[in-house]
Amino acid sequence: MRYEIRVDGHMSETLTEAFPELEHVIMSGQTVLFGPVIDEAHLYGLLNRCQSLGLRVVELRQLPE
């Protein structure tokens, strides 16, 4: 499974390091984190991480393989 998580605002380099398993790209006022997600537990873990770092998730979607 591959997912992308769109977060409101530009994340700093430091903060993107909190998601070492994902790549990121910054575009038009948003940060897109994307990459392979092992399973649902991982997915919810990522969302939890976003929440505990105060990130506002604006979109979450599965990417075609």
Partner: peptide, 12 residues
């Protein structure tokens, strides 16, 4: 005017 994520940027 900035567009950074708030907590992250401000905390730094």
């Amino acid at each position: 005017a900035g567009r950074s994520t708030i907590a992250d940027f401000l905390l730094a």
